[in-house]
């Protein structure tokens, strides 16, 4: 049984407020499975040699979703999990991951999700991952996800990775490898506040002709928090890639953005853009002329920017 605050946590990170009545899911709570269900087309099995699960999506599965949220509510827990996804040829599937930490204690709580995606020929994956921390304790909430994606010929993957708030320290490591005509879209949105730190490394290897990738990173840093972004696109073929980093800086925060583009093939077309700046004054004034206080206006602008 899930406690009420655990249900709230699930809702925040995975849009579900209890164990789903149907569909494939695996809910991990404090390092153990709190519920698991496979369907005819999506089979979830625990790993035998280490913590984690294998998720197998049969070829040509359509219109199905898998929920695999993780919640950590025990202070001091250090949870590491290895999840491998095998998406069959031509399948179309939505994967909802995410991790919520509720830490009321004074010991650090940490979750490292090591996710590996093997996306078969012409398969399409939509992946949503939300990270969130809460709780009154002085113990930190730490999330260090490692994500590796292998896209087979013509495969497509859209990844939305969001850090909502309350995560004290995060080091994100994302790698993707694209075969012929594969397509990848990564949208990263991140907010840090207090004395939080965030680092995100992304490497996209465009190996196959006709492959394309887009990384859109938007972030807001408040208070004394610090962020570092290091997205890299490497073109090894006739490919296209676009890297875009856009940050709003507030208070005494610090942001470093280091987009890198590399071409190892003369038909690689790679572009990057990066911008850091405070909230635009005209935007604030405009919203005040609609009757909002400057504080509410700021909130609305940030919410929109991160939406």
């Amino acid at each position: 049984m899930l406690e009420n605050f655990e249900k709230e946590l699930l809702k925040t990170i995975a849009d579900i407020s209890d164990l789903p009545g149907a569909g494939a899911f695996n809910i991990r709570r404090n390092g153990e499975s709190a519920g698991r269900h496979s369907t005819e087309n999506i089979v979830i099995e625990p790993k035998k040699d280490k913590p984690g699960i294998d998720i197998k999506v049969m070829p040509f599965t359509k219109h199905e979703a898998v929920h695999i949220p993780v919640i950590v509510t025990e202070s001091g827990l250090n949870d590491v999990v290895y999840n491998d996804f095998y998406i069959g040829e031509g399948a179309e599937v939505r994967i909802v991951a995410g991790c919520g930490i509720h830490n009321n204690g004074d010991c650090d709580s940490r979750h490292d999700g090591i996710h590996r995606f093997h996306i078969g020929k012409n398969a399409k994956v939509t992946y949503v991952e939300k990270h969130y921390g809460e709780g009154e304790g002085t113990g930190a909430r730490i999330l260090n996800p490692v994500t590796e994606v292998f896209l087979d010929e013509g495969a497509e993957c859209e990844m939305e990775m969001v850090q909502i708030k309350g995560v004290d320290s995060t080091v994100r490591d994302t790698k993707a490898n694209l075969a012929e005509n594969a397509k990848l879209l990564i949208t990263e949105r991140l907010m840090t506040h207090g004395a939080q730190t965030a680092r995100s490394d992304v490497v996209i290897n465009l190996n196959g002709d006709g492959s394309s990738a887009q990384i859109i990173s938007r972030s807001v840093a408040r208070d004394t928090s610090e962020q570092i972004f290091y997205p890299r696109a490497v073109g090894n073929s006739r490919c296209r890639a676009h890297v875009q980093c856009d940050s709003i800086i507030m208070d005494s925060a610090k942001i470093r953005s280091i987009p890198e583009i590399a071409a190892n093939h003369c038909d690689a077309q790679i572009v990057h853009e990066a911008a850091i700046g405070r909230i635009n004054n005209d935007q604030l004034t405009k919203l005040c002329t609609l009757g909002m206080t400057p504080e509410d206006a700021e909130q609305v602008i940030i919410e929109g920017f991160l939406s």
């Binding site: 938007r218 856009d246 635009n280 005209d282 935007q283 004034t285 405009k286 005040c288 002329t289 609609l290 009757g291 909002m292 206080t293 400057p294 609305v300 602008i301 919410e303 929109g304 920017f305 991160l306 939406s307």
Partner: peptide, 24 residues
């Protein structure tokens, strides 16, 4: 009075160069 207060009293201004908002 501040901009906010005036707006609430029913003053409205359509800017010559309206700002753009990402995500709105």
């Amino acid at each position: 009075l501040s901009v906010t207060e005036r707006a609430r009293l029913g003053v409205g201004y359509a800017f010559q160069q309206p700002p753009r908002f990402k995500g709105m």
